[in-house]
Computed example of a mutant assay.
Amino acid sequence: MTSSVAPNAPKRENYLARLRAGGQRPPWMERPSWFGQGAKALALALIVVMVTYPFLLALGTSLAGQKELEARGGYVLIPHHPTFQAYSVLLQGGVVTRATLVSIGITLIGTALSLLCTITLAYGLSRPGMLMGKPILLIVLGTFLFAPGIIPTYLVVQQLGLLDSYASLILPVLLNVFNVIVVRAFFQGIPTELYEAARLDGAGELAILRRIVLPLSKAVIAVAGLFYAVSYWNSFFNALLFMNDSGKYPLQVILRSYVVQGETINAHALGVNVLPPSISLQMAVLIIALVPILLVYPFLQKHFAKGVLTGAVKG
């Protein structure tokens, strides 16, 4: 149904453009007061401190030596004599290095497969007239409302022969229903004229998806990809449930062993006489587990608001 406000949209946009060009605000937007701006700046500063302080404290502690830790009560924000001994010992042992490579591989392969399945399923469900489209959509939504428990999931993985394999860390969580619904809503928001024009040119569904839909959906795909990547990277419970070989553990399981369970590193196995302080080793593992996500997130964060809002709300 065509809205009665639609014909006035170009006039409204031209009016707003003239106001912006002249440095003026629309009449319905109040000019911010000094108090309001100061309160926003103070709130933002407090949030930044609350977010960055724990990370900087963990980083400083991982770089501190034994004497400095004892002098400051166990945690150091800015070490005066930083040392990378904790990182050297962890990477020299091979356990953390192998676990990091496992996590990177699972995250890259799992994210690629999850995006492939999510995009194809969402595209099929977004097209009108799809065979069995509504029943399949109801099944997808049903899995969102009634999630399987631990025991049924374990039995299915066991029957498929996936125990103690990397596939058990990917296949049970291959699809996220929330991401499918968001991507589907985004695909539905693409003008139908583009689909019709492509079909008149002789393009099939696969060509339409590859040449038209995907280039227009970079924002929502980036959001879904980041959600999947963070989920795969932070996952540790499935590894504890399905993995029997500790040599196949991802990094988060090693992090849990060192930080939560307090396991110690064998100095003789590493060929070193004196180990760094245990708190430095724990914080070093924590930093190693955080850095990859911190490096990727800034490049995709700008797509969050655009991808989620555009995919969830249609005008």
Rank of each mutant, 00 (worst) to 15 (best):
T97R: 06
V223L: 15
P172N: 05
D201N: 13
F242Q: 03
I208T: 06
I106F: 08
I104V: 15
I170L: 11
G74Y: 02
Y232H: 09
S280M: 05
L206V: 12
R184D: 00
L240D: 03
E193G: 07
A284M: 02
N176A: 06
Y75I: 10
P26Y: 00
R98E: 15
S246K: 12
A45C: 09
F35R: 13
P152C: 00
S231I: 05
L309P: 07
G93P: 12
G202E: 08
K134P: 04
P191A: 11
A197V: 04
G202C: 08
L209R: 04
R31N: 01
L116T: 06
Y297A: 14
L209N: 06
V285C: 08
A86I: 02
G202Q: 01
E263T: 04
A284C: 03
T111V: 07
G311R: 04
G247H: 06
G93R: 10
R256F: 13
M50L: 12
A312T: 13
A45L: 14
I287W: 08
K40D: 11
I136F: 14
E13K: 12
M283F: 09
A58S: 13
Y258L: 14
G142Y: 05
L300I: 14
Q92L: 15
R210V: 04
G22C: 05
S114D: 03
T83C: 08
G60D: 07
P26F: 01
S114T: 04
A269I: 05
P26G: 01
P250F: 03
G247F: 02
A112G: 11
N176P: 01
F144W: 11
W34P: 00
Y154S: 05
S126Q: 02
L162N: 06
A289G: 12
F237W: 10
L281P: 06
S235D: 15
W233L: 06
L295V: 12
Q66G: 02
N179H: 12
L295Y: 09
L138C: 11
G23I: 01
G161D: 02
R31K: 07
V95H: 07
F84C: 09
V182M: 15
A43H: 05
A207C: 11
I139T: 06
I151T: 15
L194M: 14
L91M: 15
V140T: 04
G271T: 03
S126N: 03
P148W: 02
N266L: 13
L16V: 00
